[in-house]
Structures are given as structure tokens and as C-alpha cells.
Computed example of a mutant assay.
Amino acid sequence: MSDDPHEVADASLVSTRNVEVVVMALLLAVAVFLGWDNWRIGAGWAPDGPQAGYFPFYLSVLLGGASLVGIVSALRDPALREEVFVGRSAFGRVLRVFIPTVIFVLSVQILGIYVSSFLFVSLFMILIGKIAVWKSVLTGLIFSIGMFFIFDVEFNVLLPKGPLEAAFGF
């Protein structure tokens, strides 16, 4: 929170402590999985040097240890229980960006990256940025054409294409 006395307190959606514990638990799960997998492929010392999983195994041990320390300190700190991680209005603003981004990622699979990028940039500018439709469409078009020229034509990088590119023979 800021020191502004006129700022209205935002209703708490989740506490910092809960977020820290969940993130540390997920990191601990990743560390356990990586540790197990690196142990499986060989985390010891061979006659010719370290095995393939030697360094990654010990990095996962460090990650797991740091995660455990983080969980314990988050649970022991009473101030984190009351600290607001995200309020309702801030979470709403995050969702205004997150949901269109998820839709963009899914639409790339159907429409291809260039058409999806055009729609994402244009609609984001129109709906979120409140920018004039012609400016938004022009910007989305320039961005998508520029991206196509750079990646597909100049660097010959294969990016996901959709039915529109197929109709033009790409």
C-alpha cells in the first residue's frame, strides 16, 4: 500500500503468505522431480568425470533446500499473513491482460501466428487501450506483415501458419 491517505483500501483477494507457500511448494515439487530424474540418469562420479546428472542433481538439491527454507520462513512470519498480495481491483486488471493472452496462444493453433497476432494487437489496442479503430487495425497489420517478412521471408523461420497463409501458398 502507498502512504497516500486518500487511497481507498482494496479488498484482499489473497495474502502474500499463501502465495509464497504455494510457489515454494511448486518449486519444491519441481526440485524433487528434477532430482529424481537426474539421479536416474546418473548423478555420481564416473572414472572419466561427472555423470550427465551430476551438476543438475545438486542444483535441484539446492532448489529444494531453498524452497523448504522459503516455506518455513513464510509460515513463521506473521506479517505475511496480513499483507495483501493482490487486491480485487488489481487482479481484475491482471485478468484484462491475461485472458486475451491465453486466447491469443490458443488461437495461434487454429489461425496461425500472423493472423492471431493481427487480431491480438488490434483488439487489445481497441478494447483495452481505447485507441481509434483505424490506428489499431493499421498497427496490427503493420506488425503482422513485418513479423511475416522478418521471420518467414528473411530468416526462413518456420512459425505456425493457419488457413490464410495456406490460401496464399505459404
Rank of each mutant, 00 (worst) to 15 (best):
M24L: 07
M24D: 14
A25L: 14
L26F: 15
L26W: 06
L26I: 10
L26G: 11
L27E: 03
L27T: 06
L27G: 14
L28N: 06
L28M: 14
L28C: 13
V30G: 06
V30A: 15
V30P: 10
V30L: 14
V30F: 13
A31T: 04
A31C: 13
V32N: 07
V32G: 06
V32Q: 02
F33V: 14
F33A: 15
F33C: 10
F33I: 10
L34F: 14
L34D: 08
L34C: 13
L34R: 02
L34T: 04
G35V: 04
G35M: 08
G35W: 06
G35I: 06
W36R: 12
W36K: 12
D37M: 12
D37S: 12
D37Y: 13
N38D: 09
N38V: 06
N38E: 12
W39M: 13
W39N: 11
R40Q: 14
R40C: 02
R40W: 11
R40N: 11
I41E: 07
I41L: 13
G42D: 03
G42I: 02
A43W: 01
A43S: 15
G44Q: 08
G44K: 11
W45T: 05
A46G: 14
A46Q: 10
A46P: 13
A46C: 06
P47W: 04
P47F: 05
P47M: 04
P47L: 05
P47C: 03
D48L: 06
D48A: 08
G49K: 03
G49E: 05
G49V: 02
G49R: 03
G49W: 04
P50Q: 00
P50M: 05
P50F: 05
Q51L: 13
A52D: 08
A52M: 09
A52E: 10
G53C: 05
G53H: 00
G53Y: 00
Y54E: 04
Y54C: 02
Y54M: 03
Y54R: 03
Y54F: 15
F55G: 08
F55N: 07
F55H: 08
P56W: 02
P56K: 02
P56R: 04
P56C: 01
P56N: 00
F57V: 02
F57D: 08
Y58L: 03
Y58D: 01
Y58M: 00
Y58H: 12
L59S: 07
L59H: 01
L59T: 02
S60W: 12
S60A: 15
S60D: 09
S60I: 00
S60G: 10
V61Y: 01
V61C: 07
L62W: 06
L62R: 01
L63A: 11
L63Q: 10
L63E: 07
L63S: 11
L63C: 11
G64I: 01
G64K: 07
G64F: 05
G65I: 01
G65M: 11
A66G: 15
A66M: 14
A66E: 01
S67K: 04
S67Q: 07
S67I: 00
L68A: 05
V69P: 10
V69F: 14
V69Y: 12
G70I: 00
G70D: 05
G70Q: 02
I71N: 04
V72T: 01
V72Y: 13
S73P: 09
S73F: 11
